[in-house]
Nucleic acid binder design. Structure first.
Length: 267
DNA sequence: AAAAGCCCCAACCGCCCTCAG
DNA sequence: ACTGAGGGCGGTTGGGGCTTT
């Protein structure tokens, strides 16, 4: 039952990386790029699991990483993004250039949670502290964000570009089936005053009524191809759009359209 | 100065998704 | 349509460093 291990654990090193291992990994990736992680350790002469190599590279060795303290502005952005996205650390990291999901996750758990609690804000719900159980730091992080259970499907590598800090995520109107692109709960918005100032409302509306008034599916397909656009939920990283994307369920062809991002373009 | 406790974060683990065959 | 490899993600852990007693 279950999958086979990703590598021969008996022949791999574990634990902290040595300088020599780092140098080997850096040298190999510089020479060959990020290719097949599974075969990389062998090719690079490393006794490491491929996943371990990837993690080391992504979280520590990548040249574009920004080391050092988070600024207050970073803090606020993380808080806002967490209010919107929940524990989607990779998506949050996508909004913070040079930061990794692991780094943000750690920072959240060690600093921001405490900061919010000191403000009387529940880090899970981003609402006022109820004082009840589950609002403390000891709460399991698995329950750190209210979401429909099971957790919403994960996105297909949305590759969100980095926006300026004052972006706003357009929150889709609560759909009748209760789904939202943020994968959040059906409760009132956790952060009603959240205003990241991002306009994503390009293209036809998402509502069923609007979808019903849209052109025929053939015309729409043509328009879709012309626009070469994608769903907001895709950008926000909601996988399994059938379930999570209300605009898709409203009309199979009725995606909320967005232009794909150019390299370095912000949403 | 030493011991105990706490904190931080790099790294691991297991699950899920995508996609090629 | 099915299957499994590969990649990626979120949650958790453990060890080292720091602080407190």
């Amino acid at each position: 039952m279950g999958r086979s291990p990703c590598c021969e654990k008996a022949h791999t090193n574990k634990g902290a990386w040595t300088k020599e291992e780092d140098q080997r990994l850096i040298a190999y990736i510089k020479a060959h790029g990020e290719g097949c992680w599974r075969s990389l350790p062998k090719a690079a002469g490393l006794l490491r699991c491929g996943k371990s190599c990837r993690l080391r590279w992504m979280n520590y060795l990548r040249p574009d990483l920004k080391r050092g303290n988070f600024t207050d502005a970073d803090d606020e952005l993380i808080i806002k993004l967490h209010a919107l996205l929940g524990n989607k650390w990779s998506l949050i990291a996508g909004q913070l250039p040079g930061r990794t999901d692991n780094e943000i996750k750690n920072y959240w758990n060690t600093h921001i949670k405490r900061k919010l609690l000191s403000r009387g804000i529940d880090p899970q719900t981003h609402g006022p502290l109820s004082g009840g159980a589950g609002s403390g730091l000891t709460t399991s992080s698995t329950a750190a964000f209210p979401s429909p259970s099971p957790a919403p499907p994960r996105p297909a590598r949305p590759a969100i570009a980095v926006p300026p800090p004052n972006v706003v995520f357009a929150r889709p109107a609560p759909s009748e089936d209760g789904h939202s692109s943020s994968g959040g709960s059906t409760d009132a918005p956790r952060c009603p005053d959240l205003n990241l100032d991002l306009d994503l409302s390009v293209g036809p509306p998402c509502s069923p009524a609007a979808a019903a008034s849209t052109p025929t599916s053939q015309q729409q397909q043509q328009q879709q191809q012309q626009r070469t656009t994608i769903c907001l939920c895709y950008h926000l990283g909601v996988r399994g759009g059938d379930d999570a994307c209300s605009c898709k369920t409203a009309s199979p062809a009725g995606f909320r359209y967005l232009r794909p991002l150019e390299e370095g373009q912000y949403i």
